[in-house]
Amino acid sequence: MIQHLLEVFIEGILIGGIFALFTLGLNMIYGVLEIINFAHGEFIMLGMYIAYWLFVLMGLHPLLSLAIVFPLLFFAGAAFERVVIEKVIKAHIFIQTFITFGLLLLLQNLAYFFWSADYRAIRIHFPLISIGGLHVSTPRLIGFIGSIVTIIILHLFLTKTKVGTGIRAVDENPVAAELMGINVKRMRLITFGLGTGLAGVAGVFISLFYYIYPTVGFIFILLAFIIVVLGGMGSFIGSLVGGLIIGELESLSALFVGPQWKEAVAMIVFILILLFKPTGIFGMGERK
């Protein structure tokens, strides 16, 4: 029993690392553009499908497909930002949110149209790893390590490069950034692309151990919302810690309350957080 509990606990941490990765993408977009991208889960879904088809059609290992998924979804996201989001950047937040919901419907049903509602899975054999007698799911471990590495790269990008510093400046204060000569519009473009690209990367990791179907993104976007609010809107470290906490919550509630209730539990936790600590653990809350 103890062993099983420990295994579930480890699983929670592993999955939480991946949650943290896609949540960071969502949170960066919120920080810089002040838009909640409801279609974020759909970019995860697209990442999963691209990895799947590259594997099935060309035999490309999912981890290698990262080299295609990230740039592809970066450009898709950046293009959407330039063509659509930029046009409504001053519109009421309700219109902005609503448009990303339109994108959600569009992408989800394009996937449905082209690839049907079938559940698909990437069938690769991974050797079972056991650490100190505890069985650990290898694909999840790979996904976790991959996510952590990506997060570290992202952090280095944001702190060490010029563009990264620009993004952080806009996140901090768009008006001041503009005055300092930072091209805010370009930062928005790059941030949106980065956000969707990261969602795609997370999708590839998830595809190692999860079914792939058109509406799969909805589960992840809900989780990302919970994590963003829990960790604090606009907080990097918050997304990281929040991801791990929600990963734990997911796997422990599946164990104790039953897997069919875990989403309902997550939603109730979400509502409680929204009510009692809407600014999150590390957050600065809604601006303006």
Binding site: A91, I99, F101, G102, L103, L105, L106, N109, L110
Partner: peptide, 18 residues
Amino acid sequence: RSGLDLIVLGSLIILIGV
């Protein structure tokens, strides 16, 4: 079963919003 109606809906939302 094609999801086309929702593709139309999604596109409509984006178009109208913009």
